[in-house]
Write a protein that binds this DNA or RNA. Structure first.
Length: 565
DNA sequence: GGTCTACTTCACCTTCCGCGG
DNA sequence: GGCCGCGGAAGGTGAAGTAGA
């Protein structure tokens, strides 16, 4: 088992262990690439952190999952033998394809185990990918460790139309106690048994850049027990209806029984349950993987804002599915003011789906989903990150934020770190205040929201460490605490930002303390093109229904969007 | 009636066993 | 016979629930 010492994207020396499949020329070729990233002009390029969100599609390229893994796979412990490769529901194996690749050289597809909870996708602390070997395995693979996360690399070959069957990926469960005792680990393992397979590919681009794409599978339940007994909703054909209810919703999933009930519920901000009602299930049509539900009417038919509720399927006393989300839309419209400098039509809102009653969250979401910056007539710009805190970038991990990452190492030096990442479809550019004067990002106080960069503003940092992440998360929390505790409309807090990245080496951002009703989004060209910033102003009102939970909702929706759902 | 504590129940985690290919 | 993949279950642990002071 060869091991290597490599420098990661931040120049930190780290040990990486590699395990090769037999007769694996490709692996040897890829080894150098994987240790410190692909090579550019003979120099190793760093790969984006596994915690970075990446898009599944960019330009002509698309990384997609042709066959999704089964929703249950019992992971094995280190003390056990392998429990085999992850399978699809029809007994086959997941299949991945990279579309749009015209090159002749094979690429490496990276696979790791990611989280599947409400938060942002990141490597799962309690599960690791496990390389399956044996005569039934047809796919070559190579195992390595990147920053403590096991990653399998599988060749994607043009002769196979850049399509590969993932029959060599198993899931290893680490003992909760071992992980929870680890320094800096804040997650708990108990009941944290859902994972996703995450696939990444790095495509060489002209000029020595690389384009990184990522796609993650549907969630996989990895525990023995829940897999056998608990109902699981995998899909719902309806996610909203009017407060009157009455519409039929078809749920597809697992472990539904003739006794399954569907419970709609709503919780107040303080977590107190304020509404619960059992929906009518069509028992005659019920199958083990399908439920037909009549949406119950909402408790309050006079709402003026969409109401977000949950529902779950329950088989027995405590055998209930993960909560699913549902939105009741109001019957009556409320005042909607035209938004300055903002063309609703460009977002395709129909009359009954106007901005009426739309929260800031919804606005953001729609903006995001429709590649809003383009719609807002913001020209593509170069987007620079200097060793960016991935979670800063992930603050709003929507398709817009999930810019494909081009990276080109050692092109220029910014303060202490030399890495410049250029995104595809580069809509905006920015850089953290951390870069100003070389101040340490870690010094950003969680209690000073003014240091938080706006929702679509990646923060830069000058080192990777828990204090930075903590600071960022605290920063995020702080922002939302201010929403909830102060009861301010979302449009008023936190203060808007004016972010402007200049050419490399002179980048920076500043907070504009001015009118907090306004959200400014500016863009400037980076090192290749200079362009005057364009400003978009959005006026927002009626935002009282913005809750902390909205952030999760945004994340959830966007993750779903990621998966092409 | 509210709070605290001790006890009980049960869900979950981890390990082990055994079977078939 | 050994290994792998897999199902099932035993036993430990801790969270959740309940009863009594």
């Amino acid at each position: 088992m060869p091991s290597a010492v490599a420098r990661d994207a931040h120049g930190q020396v780290q040990r990486q262990d590699c395990v090769y499949g037999e007769g694996y020329d490709w692996a040897i070729k890829q080894d150098r690439m994987g240790r410190a990233g692909p090579e550019v002009n003979g120099l190793p390029a760093p790969l984006p952190s596994l915690e970075w969100p990446l898009p599944s599609q960019s330009g002509q390229y698309e990384l997609l999952i042709q066959q999704q893994p089964k929703s249950h796979h019992r992971a094995h412990y280190e003390t056990e033998g392998s429990r085999g490769a992850v399978k699809t529901s029809n007994g086959g194996h997941p299949e991945i394809q990279l579309r749009g690749y015209q090159g002749t050289a094979p690429l490496g597809l990276q696979v790791f185990i990611g989280t599947a909870d409400e938060r942002l996708l990141k490597p799962h602390a309690f599960y690791q990918v496990h390389r399956i070997t044996g005569k039934t395995v047809t796919t070559r693979s190579m195992e390595r460790v990147m920053n403590g996360t096991k990653v399998l690399e599988i060749p994607l070959e043009p002769k196979n139309h850049m399509r590969v069957v993932i029959d060599c990926v198993g899931i290893l469960k680490l003992r909760n106690a071992d992980i929870e005792l680890r320094n800096g680990e804040t997650d708990i393992g108990r009941k944290n048994t859902r994972v996703r397979l995450v696939f990444r590919v790095h495509i060489p681009q002209p000029g020595g850049q690389f384009l990184s794409l990522q796609v993650s599978s549907d969630p996989i339940e990895c525990s023995q027990r829940s897999a056998q007994e608990f109902p699981a909703v995998e899909r719902q054909d309806l996610d909203r209806c009017s407060v009157l209810g009455g519409q039929q919703m078809v749920l597809t999933g697992q472990n539904f029984t003739s006794d399954s009930k569907v419970i709609f519920s709503e919780k107040a901000q303080n977590g107190e349950q304020i509404w619960e009602v059992e929906a009518t299930v069509d028992r005659d049509k019920t199958q083990t993987n399908m439920l037909f539900v009549e949406v119950p009417s909402y408790r309050d038919r006079t709402i003026s804002h969409p109401a977000k509720v949950n529902f779950y399927v329950i088989n027995g006393k405590k055998k209930r599915s993960q909560p699913q989300h549902f939105i009741y839309t109001p019957l009556t419209a409320i005042k909607a003011e035209p938004l300055d400098d903002y063309h609703l039509n460009s977002y395709g809102y129909s009359d009954n789906q106007s901005l009426t009653g739309l929260s800031m969250k919804s606005l953001y979401h729609h903006l995001d989903q429709d590649s809003s910056l383009q719609a807002l007539n913001i020209s593509p710009t170069l987007y620079h990150l200097t060793t960016v805190d991935p979670r800063a970038h992930m603050l709003n991990p929507d398709p817009l934020d999930d810019q494909a990452v081009y990276y080109q190492p050692r092109v220029n030096t910014l303060i202490n770190n030399p890495m410049l990442y250029h995104t595809a479809n580069q809509h905006y550019s920015n850089c953290s205040t951390a870069l100003l004067g070389g101040s340490q990002m870690a010094s950003h106080s969680a209690s000073t929201p003014s240091h938080c960069v706006g929702p679509r503003a990646p923060m830069a940092k000058l080192g990777e460490g828990p204090q930075v992440a903590d600071s960022f998360e605290a920063c995020l929390m702080s922002r939302h605490e201010s929403f909830v505790q102060a009861g301010l409309p979302l449009g008023k807090s936190p203060p808007s930002r004016y972010i402007h990245a200049q050419a490399q080496g002179k980048v920076g951002s500043r907070v504009e303390p001015g009118d907090q009703h306004l959200t400014h989004i500016s863009s400037g060209r980076g090192n290749h093109e200079e362009r005057a910033p364009e400003k978009v102003t959005i006026k927002q009102e009626n935002l009282r229904c913005a809750y902390l939970e909205d952030v999760n909702d945004i994340i959830r929706r966007d993750l779903k969007g990621h998966n092409g759902e």
